[in-house]
């Protein structure tokens, strides 16, 4: 039996279909990432699975329970790291960990928890005096103190600096090695690519793609050619200049020119030929395999284009 089984899940608020017919399953011990923009329906879907919201239609089963009934036995086996974190700021890390631990039947010790989340040095400091990243680790500590079989992580590293994100990933990977099932939501593609066994891409409440990170990248044809816009060309003219040269649709972000193409050798040949002819240098010329980010951009653009 899968740890999470979701069938044709709908959550409507009046006319708004926050979740619009989503189905997926997460196997035991698997790390599954729901990927999507803000407002794609990730948190709504996860909050239904956690038992915080009721579904409009469809069916969900989490560890064999119906989360809407929210039995105590169910909550005893899940760990929840919410996006909007609220911890008792006036208490020390030691006090909140001890306090929340008492709600569960099976508990990690304080030492074990602070060791796992890297808060050993902060154990006697008040939560209110910690930095944002440290507080997020308190959230994580409270999520794992009851030795959950299933851990929900709702955007666990949003707002982190790159090094703090790396550390959190190591931590989450460490937990996964214990056989914990993880349902992760994120809008960071590298996070999903790094942590998840499988990824589901949500856009406008619908699941638009699903698979392992490698499968998703395979599924998209093409190679990404990119370079910095030469100073002699205005940003406004970039598309009209390079569109014909590359023979593909050009994406501009800042001064970075990007195109996803099928025959990279040819395209690079044309681009460099154009550059030599015009006596300009294409800085940071790069040819790379499409990343999950490109998959994501392509998929979500398609979906938004259809609407």
């Amino acid at each position: 039996m899968p740890a999470i089984d979701v069938n044709d899940l709908h959550k409507h608020y009046g006319e708004n279909r926050a979740v619009d017919g989503v189905s997926f399953h997460v196997d035991e011990g698997e790390v599954y990432a729901l990927l999507g923009h803000n407002g794609a329906g990730k948190s709504t879907a996860v909050e239904i699975l956690e038992g915080h919201r009721e579904l409009t239609s469809g069916s969900v089963s989490v560890l064999g329970f119906n989360p809407a009934k929210a039995q105590r036995e169910f909550r005893d086996r899940i760990g929840v790291v919410l996006q909007t974190s609220g911890v008792e700021n006036e208490f020390t890390v030691r006090e909140v960990v001890d306090l929340y631990a008492t709600a569960y039947r099976s508990r990690r010790t304080l030492d074990e928890v602070v060791e796992l989340v890297g808060l050993v040095e902060k154990v006697d400091e008040r939560v209110g005096s910690l930095s944002g990243g440290q507080r997020r680790r308190v959230d994580l500590a409270l999520g794992i103190v009851g030795r959950p079989d299933l851990l929900f992580l709702d955007e666990p590293t949003t707002g982190f600096d790159p090094s703090a994100r790396r550390k959190s990933w190591d931590l989450i990977e460490g937990l996964c090695d214990d056989g914990v099932t993880v349902l992760l939501t994120t809008h960071y593609l590298d996070e999903a690519e790094h942590l998840a066994d499988r990824v589901g891409v949500l856009a406008s409440g619908k699941m638009i793609a699903e698979g392992t990170p490698a499968q998703l990248i395979e599924g998209i044809s093409g190679t990404v050619v990119s370079f910095m816009l030469p100073d002699s060309i205005e940003t406004a003219d970039a598309t009209s200049t390079f569109g014909p040269v590359l023979g593909a649709e050009v994406r501009i972000s800042g001064r970075l020119v990007e195109a996803t193409v099928d025959r990279a050798t040819e395209v690079v040949h044309r681009a460099t030929g154009w550059a030599i002819e015009n006596g300009v240098e294409l800085d940071s010329l790069r040819v790379a395999r499409a990343s999950l980010e490109d998959v994501f951009l392509q998929l979500t653009e398609q979906t938004e284009g259809e609407q």
Binding site: H52, R72, G86, V87, N89, A103, Y104, L142
Partner: peptide
Amino acid sequence: IRRDEGVLKRWRSTPLP
């Protein structure tokens, strides 16, 4: 205040009745 801080929601995620 506890509700706005999200503390109530967190407790509701735990097995504490």
